[in-house]
Amino acid sequence: MSATDMPTRTKAPLLSVRELKKHFPIRGGILGRQQAVVQAVDGVSFEVAAGETLGIVGESGCGKSTTAKLLIGLTQMDDGDIVLDGQRLGPDLSLKALRRDIQMVFQDSYASLNPRMTIADSVAFGARVQGLDDPQGRAHRLMARVGLDPDRFGGRYPHELSGGQRQRVNIARALAMSPKVVVLDEAVSALDKSVEAQVLNLLADLREEFGLTYIFISHDLNVVRYISDRILVMYLGEVVEVAPVDNIWETPAHPYTRSLFSAMPSMDPDNRTTKPPLSGDPPNPIDPPSGCRFHTRCPMASEVCKRKHPVLGRMAQGSPHWVACHLHDPASGHPKAVEEAPA
């Protein structure tokens, strides 16, 4: 895939990520020589339009969280480009400036707050660091906005709050710098269902109010479907499918996406899956399979899948649905390719 031909929308993207790559070396032996490489994120590209919410799904270990950390530079990328609002990280945009425009909410609401700092100070910290005016006032306004009375909660410590309240604090903290993009890394996964729903609604409201763009990472497909405009599916550090939420829900194209969706418990007892979902663990990212990384578990795998690495391409001319699978490429040489591909 060339850099100009990206899974894009009609609008100019607010954030565009190109060929993001992160390989973690595994060192061993007495001299700490590099023994192997974990290909945590390998050539991930996507674009997000302003005001859009991109959901990222995939099994644990597929590189979702590493991608999130690469986006705000918490982990240093090995290769790739991050372009925010037309400015490239590095030449045009400093890391500090990027970190003001992209903020993150973490999964563990307790670990992500300094236990020795009051809630109000935690929320105000970022604004203070970035030199924004009136950090304390900002903190108070945002706490009130996320539903925590600043006079009651401002002086409290994290352990005095419930999980849902703490996650509201984390959201307020992320918003304190007026970011454009908020990365939500499993932000609601640790909350119980009723609190999760409240926080999701709060996130949806904040998105409207502040014109935010979300990158929403979760393993919970229902939650991702509820909040996202588009869904990106990752497998072993690679993007296998990107599509608007309705498209991917109606017609999941990649065999991995299909098995992921079929593993979802259905609310309707007559509609329960009887076919077994994917078996086994994902292969080791230290030594990923040749060709298509999914071929070892794919029910549709053919000879070509072991040899040739599929590239992300549109399902049809002008379609917003992108997939990296030989089945949808008539020229790939996969025996079932033509009949599978929609017109």
Binding site: M104, D108, S112, F125, Q130, R173, M177
Partner: peptide, 11 residues
């Protein structure tokens, strides 16, 4: 995570 969060705020 709170150290990551602090770093992510540009400190």
């Amino acid at each position: 995570d709170y150290i990551d969060a602090a770093r992510a705020s540009g400190a």
